Simulated assay, not measured.
Amino acid sequence: MRIGEPAARTGLSRDTIRFYERTGLISGQRLANGYRDFPPETVPWLAYIRTAQALGFSLAEIARTGQELRDTPDSAAALSALFEEKIAVIDARMVQLTALRADLTARANTGCPLRTAR
């Protein structure tokens, strides 16, 4: 299928699909006329990429784990493990952000934001 079909079926722009192709997330073949030709399994994979991004996974994480998940017979268990890892990262980041917020709060309205309130 040419680039317009997966774009229409997924709601992604052609530029986004071209970007995913350049970064290796998807692959298509070039036809003799220079048009891109993508296999049918590109559409569900693009939907997966979009969902994974909405869940907070970076394109690098998706690229790193994508092939592994496609080749894993029990992908539900593998996905659950990835989610648990992501939750741990989010929890650690929340602790960092809470500490940052407390530090900013202590410095607000002190006259000099580089000094903490005494």
Rank of each mutant, 00 (worst) to 15 (best):
I3Y: 02
G4P: 00
E5F: 12
A7K: 01
R9F: 02
R9C: 00
T10D: 04
T10Y: 08
T10L: 05
L12I: 07
L12W: 07
R14L: 09
R14N: 01
R14C: 00
D15F: 06
T16L: 04
I17T: 07
I17L: 15
R18F: 01
R22I: 05
R22Q: 15
G24F: 03
L25F: 04
I26D: 02
I26T: 04
Q29I: 06
Q29F: 02
R30G: 08
L31N: 05
A32L: 07
N33H: 05
Y35L: 02
R36I: 03
D37E: 14
D37T: 03
F38C: 07
F38A: 05
P39Y: 05
P40V: 10
V43K: 09
P44I: 04
A47H: 13
A47Y: 01
A47C: 06
Y48H: 12
Y48S: 11
Y48A: 12
I49W: 00
R50F: 00
T51V: 04
A52F: 04
Q53K: 14
Q53H: 07
A54G: 09
L55S: 02
S58I: 07
L59F: 05
A60R: 11
E61Q: 14
I62K: 01
I62Y: 00
R64K: 13
T65Y: 13
Q67Y: 01
Q67H: 11
L69F: 01
R70L: 15
T72M: 02
P73L: 14
D74N: 15
A76M: 07
A76G: 03
L79V: 13
S80V: 09
A81V: 08
A81F: 02
L82K: 10
L82P: 04
F83K: 14
F83G: 05
E84Q: 14
K86A: 03
I87H: 12
A88H: 12
V89N: 08
I90V: 15
I90H: 11
D91T: 13
Q96Y: 01
L97R: 12
A99L: 12
A102Y: 03
A102K: 11
D103P: 03
D103K: 12
A108M: 14
A108L: 15
T110Y: 09
T110G: 07
G111V: 10
G111W: 07
C112W: 12
C112A: 13
C112Y: 11
C112Q: 15
C112K: 12
P113W: 01
L114G: 13
T116P: 04
T116V: 10
T116Q: 10
A117G: 06
R118P: 15
R118Y: 06
